[in-house]
Design a protein around this nucleic acid. Structure first.
Lengths: 214, 214
DNA sequence: TAGATTGTTAATCGATTAACAATC
DNA sequence: TAGATTGTTAATCGATTAACAATC
């Protein structure tokens, strides 16, 4: 059974909005003040009607002939996506990927703030990565409850992902972003997002494979 | 204009296959030899008919009542996805994320092998990360041509992504996996895959935001 | 004004789901 | 055999695209 939908926008459209945002930001930097759907579509290799439909989701409205105000549109996307509300998150697993996420500046744009990192390696505990101290994973529960953290990021090996997820849920976490290539068995109501980059790579690889073997 | 399709499978189905694969691998480890579509569906929170349809893409066929042979199904997915053909790749940008990718073991499963890393920081050039030497980005073209590398990974800041992509294409690269949150203007025929994890985060964040603000 | 672009309502397309005979 | 599961063919659902009047 697929989990029932939380969103009032289609998933593909939701994923396009951050892409629009990136493009609009770059346009804003160049001093552009308004932009039309056909112009956005051209840059992003979409069709104008799709851009108009996607933008309509944010509630903003454009002017015929002129298009949309860039600043207004940027703010509409921020609001719609909930980026203006910053949430705290914790991360478990401080391998290469975990540390990369700890230093990921763009999280600010999306309103996510990693407040603590955890690991089970005693050699790492107490060290600082990107100015954040690593705690032992046994402190997860008290820490999350004290800080009322709702979001957890998993960057441990696949074998440990299920266990970490369970500890997170016990700690009051309700949204999990999982980078381990593992299938997690989670209770109803937990928000789950696959972060595993293997899926993205698979798509690229398959396209290349098919092209080279045609 | 959206680029015309390269694939003979739907994109959503293509993305589910690696997820099946991960699950089947974990089942294989536990000594399971056959599995039915309803069992896979239950574990992955899908519906049985969708699992059967997805599996049908790989060309494999099951037995009523028994299901599919796990080893056979694993190999069918590997073959279909092209994982059995390993391609060389290069990566430009050796920040935290670039280094994480350099050490990403799962690439072996997917048949990708990062052979060289590049950076424009003279302090990094010549150093080793995960046993791979960092070269100056000026060597990109000669290096890619000599080794006949077709796949490039971009992990530079957004401002430099377009320039790096152009150098890659000049170097004979035809498939680009871009982790920078930048919109790239690429010629026709170049295979492109967004790697930017901000999109994945946005989906998680939006679901949580909507849930908390309902 | 003329022409381009908007938002809305309707049509199409593609993916998911249902139905069901075949089969282990 | 009886019952569960398969693969196939048809129906449904949802996202994309088209058509078009309104408007700047």
């Amino acid at each position: 059974m697929p989990s029932k939908e939380l969103l009032n926008i289609s998933l593909p459209a939701l994923k396009r909005l951050p892409v629009y945002y990136n493009f609009l930001k770059s346009q804003e930097k160049e001093g552009v003040e308004t932009i039309t759907a056909p112009a956005i579509a051209k840059a992003l290799k979409l069709v104008p009607i799709q851009v108009r439909k996607d933008i309509a989701n944010t509630g903003i409205t454009g002017k015929p002939k002129t298009g949309y105000g860039i600043k207004e549109l940027l703010r509409a996307i921020e609001d719609f996506m909930g980026w203006t509300n910053t949430y705290d998150a914790i991360i478990v697993g401080t391998g290469d990927l975990g540390r990369a996420l700890l230093g990921y500046e763009a999280f600010k744009t999306y309103g996510l703030n990693i407040v603590k990192a955890f690991d089970n390696d005693p050699n790492k505990v107490g060290k600082l990565f990107h100015n954040k101290e690593i705690h032992h994973v046994d402190e997860l529960e008290t820490c999350c409850k004290r800080l009322d953290v709702k979001t957890g990021i998993i960057t441990v090996p696949a074998e440990n992902a299920q266990e970490v997820a369970e500890r997170m849920i016990k700690s009051g976490i309700i949204a999990i972003w999982n980078f381990a290539p593992a299938i997690l068995d989670l209770p109803e109501g937990i928000i789950y997002q696959q972060g595993d980059i293997g899926i993205s790579l698979s798509v690229l690889k398959k396209k290349l494979f098919d092209k080279l073997n045609r």
